[in-house]
Amino acid sequence: MARFVLRRLLQSGVVLLGVTLVVFLLLQLVPGDPVRVALGTRFDPQTYEALRARAGLDQPLVVQYFDYLRRALTGDLGVSFRSGRPVTEIVLERLPATLSLAVTAVLFAMLVAFPLGILSAIRSGSLIDHAARVFSQFGVSVPDFWMGIMGILLFAGVLGWLPPSGYVALTEDPGKWASHVALPAATVGLVTASILTRFIRSSMLEVLSEDYVRTAEAKGLRTRVVVLRHVLRNALIPVVTVVAVQLASLLGGVIVIEVLFAWPGIGRLTYDAVQARDYPVLQGAVLLVAALFLLVNLLVDILYARLDPRITVK
C-alpha cells in the first residue's frame, strides 16, 4: 500500500510539473507581445514596463520558467495584467463559489443517479430501465448551456420561481444561496446524473452476473437481500471513482454554466480573463484547476486501493 501511494504521488508530481510547463508556455504562445496586447487601450509605458518585469518577460525562456516554478511553489502566481492584484488572491477568492456549485451539482446528480441506476439494473428491461437509458442518453447529448437557457426561460421567466442568475454566498444567506444555486446546479447535475446512471447501471449488471450472486440467489436469498448485501457494495466501488472524477472536472470545467448563470467562480474568472487578455489570471486559474484535478484523482486512487485490495497487487 505504502509503495503504491508513493508511486502514485511521484507520478502525480511529474504530471504536475508538466502541467506547470504547459501553463507557462501558454503565455509564450500569444502572438505578439502579451503585455502590450493585454493592456490594449490602457497602455502606458510605466505600467507596461512594470508588468513586463513582474512577469519576467525580459528574461531568457528557461530562466523565466524556473522562476515561474519557484514562485508558484511559494504560492506566488504573478499579478493580474488587468488590476495589478496578486493572481493567487484573485483565484482563491473565486474558489468558494465554484466549490459550492460543484458539490451541490454532484449531490443532486447522486440523488438522481443512484436510485435510477440501481433500479434500472435490478429491473433490467423494465419500463424504468428504458426510462433510465433514455434519460442518460439525453443527458450525455444535450448541450448543458442550452438546457440552462431553457431552464432560465421556464423557471425564471414563465414560472418566476427562481432567480435567472446571480450569486449569494452560502455564508451570507443560505436561503438565497439555495435559490440561486438551484438552476445552475440542476443544469450541471443533470448531465452528471446521466453519466452516473450509466455507470451505476452497468456496474450493477456486471456484479449481478457474477457467480457468487447467482449462487446466493440459488441458495434462496431473496433478491433484495442479495442486492443490498453483496451487489451494492461491490458495484459501487468503481462508482466512487466516477463520482470523484466528475466532481474534479466540475471544479474547473463549468465555464459555460458559470458564465450563463453569472456565477462568480473559477470558470467565470477564466472566461473574464480570456476576454480581458489577462494572461496571468488565466494561467493561475488553469493551474489551480489542473492541480485540484490531479489531487482529487490521486485521493480517489488511494481511496480505491483501500476499498479494493486487488488494486495494490498490480
Partner: peptide
C-alpha cells in the same frame, strides 16, 4: 504517455478555452 497525462489533467473545455484565448 506522461505528456498525455498532462493534457488529461485539464478539464476539456478549460484547456480548449485557454488555447483559443492564446491563439485568438
Amino acid at each position: 504517455m506522461r505528456c498525455m497525462d498532462v493534457l488529461f489533467a485539464f478539464p476539456v473545455l478549460l484547456l480548449a478555452v485557454a488555447i483559443v484565448a492564446v491563439l485568438g
